[in-house]
């Protein structure tokens, strides 16, 4: 009886947003008279960071400090229509809507500043720190705050913007499946190292390494949060979770977290992620979105690693000790496959 190490990999891509299109997002932005901006959305923050992603996108586009922007979600009386937070669409769809709204607001902001400075709005730049000045001549400047106050109380201008992003709905050819799908695809590859106990059938994930191409990591900390949390979910899907362990037999339904198996703190594994950024032509600053795909390569990589360790193919998820043991038994014992470098 022994523990066998194995290594498996998987590579995937992921379509961003509802793939037939027809999923619009809207955003509204306005400034208060002190040059502080509110972004009003009906988008949902599930913990994934919708508020912060759109806050950074709005601040970047407006050219003001992030601290001068707050995002309000979600109130159907104040936030304009959005399809919702699903299909990895938040960053891409709503990010683009926020850019459109912020651009319109920035246009008014620069016009108001131009009027105060008596220059052409096209000659003005923002420094991202709360100032607007003539390109190449920072001494000819005005603060965003002073501009907003002048717009509100002197010029009678609304520093506000509306934005919408829509990929039109595609038809599908019934006979060939031809369609105009979404345009942004994220990519990933992951290697999982596991250990399989041929006496108990238990699989332990030792470590994982991945590369994710996400167009643009708008907030790397939140990307890390998504990818690490999602990898945990991937381990969970691969090895533990199901409300129907003998599907399609629906019996044994778990009723709470005592009965529903998920990896605990001792079952997680060291995980190293590398981010690649190939900007999507239609993404906000090229961003795609790591929301859903973060679990996807983990499932097959672990399944492939289990095969590499003991020579058992488990084609039905989850890969329970019972299935592994039955496989080892059917094979007449563990059959370790060739090692693949890297101290697996």
């Amino acid at each position: 009886m022994a523990r066998h190490r194995g290594r498996g990999m998987a590579s995937v891509n992921y379509p961003i947003g509802m793939n037939l299109g027809g999923d619009p997002s809207q955003a509204l932005i306005h400034s208060n008279p002190d040059g502080k901006f509110t972004v009003a959305l009906s988008a949902i923050d599930l913990g994934q960071g919708m508020k912060q992603v759109t806050r950074q996108v709005a601040a970047e586009t407006l050219g003001v400090p992030m601290e001068d922007v707050y995002v309000d979600t979600a109130d159907s009386d104040t936030g304009p229509h959005d399809m919702g937070s699903f299909a990895s669409r938040g960053t891409h769809r709503m990010g683009n809507a926020v850019i459109a709204a912020a651009r319109e607001a920035r246009g008014v902001l620069l016009e108001a500043a131009a009027e105060e400075l008596e220059v052409n709005a096209g000659d003005l730049v923002t420094d991202g720190r709360g100032n607007i000045h003539v390109k190449g001549a920072p001494s000819r400047s005005i603060t965003v705050k002073a501009t907003a106050q002048a717009a509100q109380f002197k010029q009678g201008k609304t520093i506000a913007g509306r934005g919408i992003f829509l990929i039109p709905l595609s038809t599908v050819d019934p006979q060939t499946g031809e369609l105009n799908p979404n345009t942004a695809f994220a990519h990933a590859c992951l290697v999982a190292d596991v250990e399989v106990d041929d006496e108990t059938g238990e699989v332990t994930v030792l470590k994982m390494a991945s590369a994710y191409e996400l167009g643009r990591a708008i907030n790397p900390k939140m990307v890390e949060q998504q990818l690490v949390g999602g990898a945990w979910m991937g381990i969970s899907h691969a090895l533990y979770e199901t409300p129907e362990p003998y599907y399609p037999d629906p019996s044994h339904g778990p009723r709470d977290f005592n009965e529903y198996l998920m990896p605990g703190p001792g079952d997680t594994a060291p995980y190293s992620v590398t981010i690649l950024e190939r900007p999507a032509p239609d993404g906000p600053f090229g961003g795609k979105g790591p929301g859903e795909m973060c679990a996807n390569p983990v499932l097959p990589a672990i399944a492939n690693a289990v095969y590499n360790a003991v020579g058992v193919r488990v084609n039905d998820l989850p890969i329970t000790p019972e299935k592994v043991l039955r496989g080892i038994k059917a094979n007449g014992g563990a059959r370790p496959q060739p090692r693949r470098g890297g101290g697996g």
Binding site: G128, A217, P220, S272, V273, E277, R278, P279, F285
Partner: peptide, 24 residues
């Protein structure tokens, strides 16, 4: 652990951004 490979696709990307790309 998170790291970047900024060298890849660098020609297609403008990294001269103010707050986008920051882990605020």
């Amino acid at each position: 652990m998170l790291e970047f490979r900024k060298d890849l696709f660098a020609a297609e990307r403008d990294d001269n951004l103010n707050i986008v790309g920051k882990g605020a």
